[in-house]
Simulated scan of single mutants.
Amino acid sequence: MPAQQHESILDAAILCAKECEHCADACLDENNNMAECIRLCRDCSQMCWVSAGYISRGSRFIPQIVRSCIEICQACASECEKHDDDHCQKCAQTCRQAAEEYQKVANVAGVA
């Protein structure tokens, strides 16, 4: 899987990682119960950064990584959607878009 063929997934992964980092940081500044949102944003961001590396290298482990990315992005989006903050809503949308891109790779790789 050459990286050039998967620019959209790389772009989505990096954007998702950035938005999750921003959301987690913004949630830290709030004085309400945002612990789960912060945890999931951090997990999602880290996984998206990692996936970008695996995809860029054309690793044989992309199917396993993609499966995890889909699950984590969906969990992060579901949590962020619970909050009215603009940064949470933007993060949720970005996570959903990344999960869709990961699903395209999963479909090609035969991952359900």
Rank of each mutant, 00 (worst) to 15 (best):
Q89W: 01
I38Y: 03
M47S: 07
E100S: 13
C37G: 09
E71K: 14
Q46Y: 05
A109P: 05
Q4V: 15
S59H: 06
C48L: 13
I55T: 03
Q46M: 10
D29Y: 05
N32A: 13
D11A: 15
D11G: 05
E21D: 14
I38S: 08
H6D: 04
C41M: 10
E36H: 14
G110C: 11
A99C: 10
L28Y: 08
A13P: 01
D43S: 13
Q64L: 12
N107R: 14
R60G: 06
Q46W: 01
E101R: 11
D84I: 09
Q46T: 02
N32S: 11
E100Q: 12
E36W: 06
I9M: 11
Q46G: 09
C91G: 04
A12M: 11
E100L: 14
V66S: 10
C80M: 05
E81D: 13
E30M: 09
D25N: 10
I38N: 04
R39L: 09
I55Y: 00
A112H: 09
S59T: 10
E101I: 09
C88G: 00
C16V: 04
R67H: 15
Q5T: 10
C44H: 03
F61G: 02
D29L: 08
G58P: 12
A106I: 03
F61P: 00
S59K: 05
N107P: 00
Y102C: 12
G53I: 06
V105D: 01
V108F: 14
W49K: 07
G110N: 05
K104R: 15
A3W: 07
Q74G: 00
V108D: 10
A98C: 15
I70D: 00
D29R: 13
P2D: 14
C41F: 09
C44W: 00
A109F: 12
D85V: 14
E79Y: 07
Y54Q: 14
C20L: 03
C20M: 06
N33P: 03
E7W: 11
A77H: 02
R42I: 07
D84P: 08
S51E: 05
C73P: 01
N107K: 10
Q74F: 00
Y102M: 13
E71V: 12
H83Q: 11
H83M: 10
L40E: 00
Y54H: 15
C20E: 00
R42M: 08
C80E: 01
F61R: 00
I70P: 01
P63Y: 05
V50S: 12
D11Y: 12
Q89G: 03
C76P: 03
D11I: 08
M34S: 05
P63R: 06
Q93T: 14
R57Q: 14
H6M: 07
E30C: 06
K104S: 12
I72R: 03
L28K: 07
A98T: 06
A99K: 03
R39A: 05
A106C: 09
L15Y: 07
V111F: 09
V50T: 13
E79N: 06
A109H: 12
S8Q: 13
P63K: 07
D29I: 06
